[in-house]
Amino acid sequence: MSSVSLLILGDGRFPSGGHAHSGGAEAAIAAGRVHDTATLEDFCRGRLATTGLVAASLAAAAATGYDPLLLDAAADARTPSPALRRVARKLGRQLMRAVRTTWPDPELDRLAAALPAGAHQPIVMGLAARAAGLTPHDAARAAAYDSVSGPVTAAIRLLGLDPFEATAVTARLTGDMENVAGEAAGHAARLPADGVDALPAASAPLLDITAEQHAAWPVRLFAS
């Protein structure tokens, strides 16, 4: 296991299509709910505690080697917004393409063959972490970080935020991300005993609602 692998997986420049997704930030910015670093931090904290926790748990679960198809169904049940289900699968397919080249692994090939339209992205991330020799806890860290770094990057572009201030937002959420990753790893460890229904299902009503609104916009800069 190498911590460098975690840096590669978590790098915002990892070519898996994430740069075109704002994680709901574009809609929140358009509505005026996010307009500076303080509101961006609130946004990220809420996203991390809800969909971020679910993503981190799915990633950690997949990294334990748990059946990714069962996890994928659990992800569907936790994603009532069809726009977000589509995005999760699209990002999952794009991440799959990238990691099959970076960390070739038969488990990735099997999942790609079983779900050609894409598995939910956190599950692919978990399997990628596994292929890269990382732990479930690290997979959860990567997913938790991903749930914050996406909106922060998008906000820098959309609001013209000072990139240092925006990066400080991410840094201030380090403790939150570690907590979420720890909780997610705990859930993943109990998975064999508890089953997928025990995985967290935290939801954020506004993320679900605005994802659908955003998908209906005639013009937008970000895919989600």
Partner: peptide
Amino acid sequence: VETGACPHTAIRDDISANLE
């Protein structure tokens, strides 16, 4: 293809969405 305000990235640094 949406490019997240970075058309440049979508054709060179991260071509995922275009490949799709």
